[in-house]
Simulated assay, not measured.
Amino acid sequence: MLKGFKDFLMRGNVVDLAVAVVIGTAFTAIVTAFSNGLIKPLINAIGGSDAAKGLGFNVLSGNDSTFLDFGGVINAAINFLIIAAIVYFVFVLPVQKIQDRRKRGKEAGPAEPTDVELLTEIRDLLREQQRKS
């Protein structure tokens, strides 16, 4: 029972699903807090004198709802890269190495005889039996 469970966990699609769940939940909050607290203020500092808005501009001056926030887009891209790197190096790469080791441990057994070889062997055994009779 435990071997079956282990095989189930080591299948590629289960690992991919687990990686997707991790990307969507666990690391998002941590990385978002990091980038909002440290990276976005640095990006907004480049934005100019209006530090409250950050890196971007208003399409219609005086209308804050038309503000194009380039700093937020850059921040989201940095979030994605950090999350993807963490998931790859912490989860995907180690699982691939484990699967490669498991594959290396399995040696190829002797080759199965072909149908022609089996039929030839049966024919020869039948001839031998007929000669003895």
Rank of each mutant, 00 (worst) to 15 (best):
L2A: 15
L2Q: 14
K3Q: 15
G4D: 15
G4F: 15
G4V: 13
F5V: 13
F5N: 13
F5Y: 14
F5E: 13
K6R: 13
D7T: 10
F8H: 05
L9H: 06
M10W: 15
M10D: 15
G12Q: 11
G12W: 10
N13K: 10
N13L: 10
V14D: 03
V15S: 12
V15Q: 11
D16C: 01
L17D: 09
L17W: 07
A18S: 01
A18V: 10
A20K: 08
I23Q: 07
I23S: 06
I23N: 01
A26E: 02
T28E: 12
V31Y: 10
T32E: 10
A33W: 15
A33Q: 14
A33P: 15
F34Y: 07
S35D: 14
N36A: 05
P41S: 02
P41L: 00
I43Y: 09
I43A: 04
I46C: 03
I46G: 11
G47F: 05
G48K: 03
D50L: 01
A52Q: 07
A52K: 01
A52T: 02
G54W: 01
L55H: 02
G56N: 00
G56Y: 06
G56I: 04
G56A: 08
N58C: 06
N58E: 04
L60T: 10
L60I: 10
L60M: 10
G62S: 01
S65K: 03
T66L: 00
T66G: 08
F67K: 01
F67Q: 00
F67W: 06
L68K: 02
D69F: 00
G71Y: 04
G71A: 07
G72V: 03
V73S: 08
I74F: 07
N75A: 05
A76V: 08
A77W: 03
N79Q: 03
L81H: 01
I82E: 06
I83T: 00
I83P: 02
A84M: 15
A85Y: 08
A85R: 10
I86N: 03
I86K: 09
V87F: 03
V87Q: 05
Y88G: 11
Y88F: 05
Y88N: 11
F89R: 11
V90H: 07
V90A: 05
P94L: 12
V95T: 09
K97D: 10
K97S: 13
Q99I: 12
K103P: 09
K103S: 15
R104G: 00
G105E: 14
G105S: 14
G105V: 11
K106N: 14
K106Q: 14
A108W: 11
A108V: 12
P110E: 06
A111Y: 05
E112Q: 13
T114A: 01
T114L: 10
D115G: 15
E117Y: 11
E117S: 08
L118E: 10
L119I: 04
L119D: 04
T120G: 13
T120I: 06
I122C: 09
I122F: 14
R127E: 13
Q129L: 04
Q129D: 06
S133G: 14
